[in-house]
């Protein structure tokens, strides 16, 4: 799906846990997430700490969207 969004001319960042699969499907901007059932959260933490995780991950996603790239790039 990321590839089709990109093909339509919209920059897209893929936030996902299994980044090798994201590379295989052809995502260009990739941000590694926390875990498969909760990519942008961690139920072991408090709700406030979880929000912090989301803030950090989304900031990475924004960095990916505002960075010019030529090849598939994982934004750690």
């Amino acid at each position: 799906m990321v590839k089709e969004i990109e093909r339509a001319g919209i920059p897209v960042v893929h936030v996902c846990t299994v980044t090798p699969i994201s590379m295989t499907v052809g995502a260009n901007r990739i941000v590694p997430a926390i875990a498969i059932p909760h990519p942008l959260g961690n139920p072991a933490l408090t709700l406030e700490e979880e929000k912090d995780i989301r803030r950090k991950l989304l900031k990475k996603a924004f960095r990916a969207l505002t960075t010019e790239i030529e090849d598939q790039t994982i934004f750690e």
């Binding site: 919209i10 996902c16 846990t17 997430a33 969207l65």
Partner: peptide, 9 residues
């Protein structure tokens, strides 16, 4: 829309 954030599990 200018950009998309796609999340996957």
């Amino acid at each position: 829309v200018d950009a998309v954030i796609m999340t996957s599990t």
